[in-house]
Design a protein around this nucleic acid. Structure first.
Lengths: 203, 203
DNA sequence: CACGGATATATCAATACGATACGTCGTGTG
DNA sequence: CACACGACGTATCGTATTGATATATCCGTG
């Protein structure tokens, strides 16, 4: 499976923890979740959903109170296999876990995995960015001859952005380490868990 | 032509202003130029070069002193049409000019266009980002019910990044305006301009 | 009630990617 | 020296991804 497809799969599995959802809604949530310009296209999402249905990671949800006149919408929910798959993907973090595309999704679901996995991903990502930084600076040292003013400014801004993300990660790692269980980020909200008292999804 | 292809074309045209280059080198320069994770793939570059050759934007450069044993490498240079095309693309800025992909390339070549075009692109990009910001915040207001702590932190960080880019753009716009012709950006850093109170923007 | 816009699923041609093949060169190493 | 190995350099191709579009229902508003 390609990187992209795997990311979508992970995202769907993660989101469905909040309760049954249909394609359109998954797409909206996802596009919002990662401030993204890059949006998730239907041409990617729907085929993925079908494949996941085929491989038994998700299933169509029974929805009792659907009004019969209502346009059919296919609401999906996790199967046990789906739960396991999610847990597996979140725990068995390989070196691909901290690439640009995947990292955001993984991070968004950190609340559903253990601290050890979180730290591994955060540190992996930080190394990745630092390495990128070093490479750019090395290249820059060699190519510095006569750089255009604007080109240089673009470089500077790029490097600065990455450095800031590194700082952000460092703060998170630090919080993770000292916070242990409870509160890594000064967050305003409590750990979600499954919101079982939660919203009746019925219309 | 699709957005991506147009971006590559612009990038090639811009780079070739520095002198003749061959594909491999263009790729390296390009990948460096935009701190990019997204790299330019051969599968995109070489076909684009051939198309540009066909449409007469570039031509093979005569290279006198090539050692005969040397593996053939195709060095390209701009034609007059290429120069015109570049100027046209940089000047006739439409609303597509400040999308994520294109903006970086355009910015890198700002030195080769006039202040008016620069300002239009910078302001366009800023509006684009602000609009994105507003949308996200609106969405956030509606969806804020029970947000997971990590998901929220990801949001926060995303918004913050965009806000910082907006600030960056504002500083650049400011510098452009007050700098007029000569030196909008300083060699190393930009004036940390607070908009109005502004004592000299000199570093 | 008619209109437009949000909701919702689905498909498909066009395009971009990334892996790989092929070959040359420079460099270090036993 | 000979050999391997990584950087240089062009080229192609199957496949994944996109983006646009078709279809259809629901709902709020003048």
């Amino acid at each position: 499976m390609t990187r992209r497809a795997e990311t979508i799969e992970l995202a769907v599995l993660g989101l469905l923890h909040e309760g049954p959802m249909h394609g359109y809604e998954l797409r909206k949530r996802l596009n919002l979740m990662l401030g993204w310009g890059r949006v998730l296209s239907y041409g990617s999402l729907y085929p993925t959903l079908k494949k996941m249905l085929r491989t038994g990671l998700i299933e169509e949800a029974e929805l009792g109170s659907v009004r019969p006149s209502r346009r059919p919408r296919i609401t999906y929910q996790l199967t046990d296999d789906g739960h396991h798959r999610f847990e597996h993907l979140m725990t068995e973090v390989g070196p691909t876990a901290w690439e640009d595309e995947t990292f955001g999704v993984r991070f968004a679901f950190f609340g559903r995995t253990d601290m050890e996995s979180r730290l591994r991903v955060l540190e992996g990502r930080r190394s990745r960015l630092q390495e990128r930084l070093h490479r750019v600076q090395a290249d820059l040292a060699r190519t510095q001859k006569e750089v255009d003013r604007y080109a240089a400014e673009l470089q500077r801004h790029g490097v600065e952005s990455v450095e800031r993300e590194v700082d952000w990660l460092s703060r998170l790692i630090d919080a993770e380490r000292r916070g242990g269980q409870p509160g890594p980020v000064d967050g305003a909200h409590l750990p979600a868990g499954t919101p079982d008292g939660g919203p009746p999804d019925r219309t």
